[in-house]
Nucleic acid binder design. Structure first.
Length: 574
DNA sequence: GCCGTTTTCGGCCCGACTGTTTTCAGTCG
C-alpha cells in the first residue's frame, strides 16, 4: 500500500503542531512545516523516489533527518515521532486549530488546565464558563470561540473559494472602495493576485488621503457580516458569503513594498528577504532599508532591482525557482491572453452544449479568434447524446459548409472522443482521419488502479489520432480528486509522440494543474488551452486558463493556441 | 528541524491588531 505525498505532508504538519504545543523550538516547528509544504507541492510521489533509491535530502527544506523519517514512513507506514507525541499530548490539533482564537499556546493551556483534547470538550467547558477563568483568556474570547464552534458544527466553515468565484465577490467591493472620495488606488494582493486556483482570503491594499474614513466605509460595506478587526491601518471583515477580506491603508511611497509583501507567497517573501539580508538590506512592508536609511519601496520593480533581481510576475511567486531565475535573467516571458488565436474544445446542441454550431462559431468570431474547434462528445457518452460515426460525418459536412460562408475564422473539424476502458478510442479511425484535430478524454471508469489507468491512456496514445488529451487528470476542484495516473509516464509518452496536453480553463477544472503543466513544459510537451465551452458565455473562460498557464511558467511557444493554424497543422502528430 | 561565496555552528522575516493587560503575549499573514 503506497503512502501518498499528502499523507506524508499531513503527518509532518500534525507533528509540527504537536511539537509547537509541547514548546519545541519555533525553528524546529517551522522545519517540519516547510518540509510538509515542499511535499504538498511536489508533482512526483515521494514513495516512488524513495523506492528508486533517490536522495530525498536533495529536496528543498528536507535534510538528512527529515529524509530518514520520510523513508521510514514510506516503508512502514509509520512515523514513530508522531505516535510518541500523540501519546504525550492526545489532542486533536486538526479540529481545535480550526478555531481562530486558538494557536499552540492556547491549546496547551486548555489541555493542561482543563484536560481539553477536542472541540466537543471545549464547547462544554466554554458553556460552563470554565474557559474565561484561565489566564490569557477572558469572557470575550470564550464567547467568540463558542460562536465559532457553533458555526463549524452547522457546517458554515469558510473554505477556499475558486478563483473565479472570489473575483465575482471582490470586484464589486473594490469598485465600492474606489468610489470613496480621497481614495487614490485599491488593489488586491495575496493568492488572488497570484491567480491561485483557489483563494482562502482576500488582501486589499488602499492608498488614500483619509484612512479613517476608508476604514469606516470598509467595515460598513453592505455584504459585511462580521468585523474581525478595525484599526487605523488594518481592518478585517467576514463577508456573508464566507470570504474574509483584510484591508491595509498604506502610504504611496510604500506601495511597491506593501504589494510585494502582501502578494507573497510566504515562501517567496522569505527567499527575497534572505537575498536582501545577504546584502545587508532589510525588507518590510514599508520599503527596503540599509541600516536606518530607506532605499526603495514605491514600486515592486524598484524593490526587486535594489537587490539585484529583475521583476517577477505575481503568478511565479511561489519560490519554485523564480528567484534564481530573476538573478540569472532567465525568467520566462509568460503567455498572455493577447497571444491566444483560438480555442480547442467546445460543445453544441448536438451533444450537451446549449447553442448551435453556427451560434458557437459566431461567438468565437466575436472573440477575435482565427480558428475554433467544435468538439462534441463521442457515442460512449450516452448521457450527453454523444455522436456516433454517422452523426459525426454529418457534422463534418456541416462544418465544411459553414466554413465556406465564414470570413476571418476557420472552424476546425474535431470531436472529444472517449478513451474506452481497454484504451481503444470510441470512434473508428476511418472517421477520425477526416478531422482537423482530435481531442481525447476519459469520462468513465475513473476508479481504475493507477497502473491500469496509466496503461489505458498509454494504449490510447498509440493511436495516430491522439492529439490533445482533455482535462488529463479529471479532477474537479473541491469536489473530486482526479483519476489515479502516473502523470510522469504519460507526459514522457506525450513528449515522445508529440501530442499535446490540455489546460482546461473551466474554473472548476483548471486541469492540468500548474504543477503538472510545468512538469509537461519541462518535458517539452506543449499545452492546448481550452474553454470546454458548453454555452456562449463559457467562451470567456479562456482567461482562467491563461492564469493557470502563467503559473506553470508557460511562454507563448509552449501553448499551441499562440500559433497560426498553418503552423499548427505541421505540429499535429500522426 | 534546515542550511551554508561566512559549512559542522549559529542563524532562521517582521509588523499590526486584539484581548486582557497596565507593558504584553498570542495570533495572523
Amino acid at each position: 500500500m503506497a503512502v501518498h505525498n499528502h499523507e506524508i505532508a499531513k503527518a509532518l504538519k500534525k507533528l509540527s503542531d504537536l511539537l509547537e504545543i509541547d514548546g519545541a523550538s519555533s525553528f524546529r516547528v517551522r522545519a517540519y512545516r516547510n518540509a510538509a509544504q515542499t511535499i504538498n507541492e511536489m508533482s512526483q510521489e515521494l514513495a516512488d523516489l524513495a523506492e528508486d533509491g533517490q536522495d530525498l535530502s536533495k529536496l528543498p527544506d528536507i535534510g538528512k533527518n527529515m529524509a530518514d523519517k520520510i523513508k521510514n514512513f514510506v516503508q512502514t507506514g509509520k512515523l514513530p515521532q508522531l505516535e510518541e507525541m500523540q501519546q504525550k499530548i492526545p489532542v486533536d490539533t486538526e479540529e481545535l486549530l480550526q478555531i481562530s482564537q486558538l494557536g499552540a499556546k492556547g491549546i496547551k493551556a486548555l489541555y493542561e488546565n482543563l484536560g481539553i483534547t477536542n472541540m466537543d470538550q471545549l464547547k462544554k467547558a466554554a458553556e460552563a464558563g470554565k474557559v474565561e477563568a484561565l489566564k490569557g483568556f477572558g469572557k470575550k474570547t470564550q464567547q467568540k470561540m463558542l460562536d465559532e464552534i457553533n458555526k463549524i458544527s452547522r457546517g458554515e466553515t469558510k473554505g477556499r473559494f475558486k478563483w473565479a468565484i472570489a473575483e465575482q465577490i471582490i470586484e464589486p467591493y473594490i469598485s465600492y472602495l474606489k468610489n470613496i472620495e480621497g481614495v487614490v488606488s485599491v488593489d488586491a494582493a495575496g493568492s488572488y493576485r497570484r491567480k491561485k486556483e483557489t483563494v482562502g482570503d482576500m488582501d486589499l491594499l488602499v492608498v488614500a488621503d483619509n484612512p479613517t474614513e476608508v476604514m469606516n466605509r470598509f467595515v460598513s460595506y453592505e455584504d459585511v457580516e462580521e468585523v474581525i478587526a478595525h484599526g487605523e491601518t488594518k481592518s478585517s471583515v467576514n463577508l456573508r458569503l464566507g470570504l474574509q477580506v483584510d484591508l491595509r491603508v498604506i502610504p504611496q511611497t510604500s506601495f511597491g513594498a506593501a504589494m510585494l509583501y502582501f502578494t507573497g507567497s510566504k515562501a517567496h517573501n522569505v527567499a527575497i528577504r534572505r537575498i536582501a539580508q545577504d546584502q545587508e538590506y532589510k525588507i518590510n512592508e514599508y520599503g527596503i532599508y540599509h541600516g536606518e536609511s530607506w532605499k526603495a519601496g514605491k514600486t515592486e520593480e524598484e524593490m526587486y532591482n535594489q537587490i539585484g533581481l529583475s521583476y517577477i510576475e505575481p503568478e511565479l511567486r511561489e519560490n519554485r525557482g523564480e528567484v534564481e531565475a530573476a538573478q540569472n535573467n532567465t525568467l520566462p516571458a509568460l503567455v498572455t491572453i493577447q497571444d491566444i488565436k483560438g480555442d480547442f474544445q467546445s460543445h453544441t446542441k448536438e451533444s450537451d452544449g446549449k447553442f448551435t454550431l453556427e451560434e458557437m462559431a459566431e461567438g468565437a468570431r466575436k472573440m477575435g479568434y482565427q480558428y475554433f474547434s467544435i468538439t462534441d462528445h463521442s457515442k460512449r457518452v450516452t448521457m450527453a447524446n454523444g455522436l456516433d460515426e454517422k452523426r459525426l460525418a454529418r457534422h463534418i459536412e456541416a462544418v465544411d459548409r459553414l466554413n465556406e460562408s465564414l470570413q476571418n475564422i476557420k472552424i476546425l473539424k474535431s470531436v472529444e472522443v472517449d478513451i474506452l476502458e481497454d484504451g481503444r478510442l470510441d470512434l473508428s479511425d476511418d472517421i477520425l482521419k477526416e478531422l482537423d484535430i482530435v481531442v481525447v478524454a476519459i469520462h468513465y471508469n475513473m476508479n481504475l488502479s493507477r497502473e491500469k489507468q496509466t496503461n489505458r491512456v498509454l494504449k490510447a496514445m498509440e493511436s495516430p489520432y491522439f492529439h490533445i488529451m482533455a482535462h488529463p487528470t479529471g479532477r474537479m476542484i473541491g469536489k473530486r480528486e482526479g483519476y489515479e495516473l502516473d502523470m510522469e509516464k504519460i507526459l514522457d509518452a506525450a513528449s515522445e509522440k508529440g501530442c499535446f496536453m490540455e489546460i482546461n480553463a473551466a474554473p472548476d477544472r483548471l486541469d492540468l494543474s500548474d504543477i503538472y503543466a510545468r512538469m509537461a513544459k519541462d518535458k517539452g510537451v506543449k499545452m492546448a488551452l481550452s474553454t470546454d465551452a458548453h454555452n456562449l458565455d463559457n467562451l470567456g473562460y479562456m482567461r482562467f486558463g491563461i492564469n493557470q498557464a502563467r503559473r506553470a511558467w508557460l511562454e507563448p511557444k509552449d501553448v499551441i493556441n499562440t500559433y497560426s493554424w498553418e503552423e499548427l497543422k505541421q505540429m499535429i502528430p500522426g
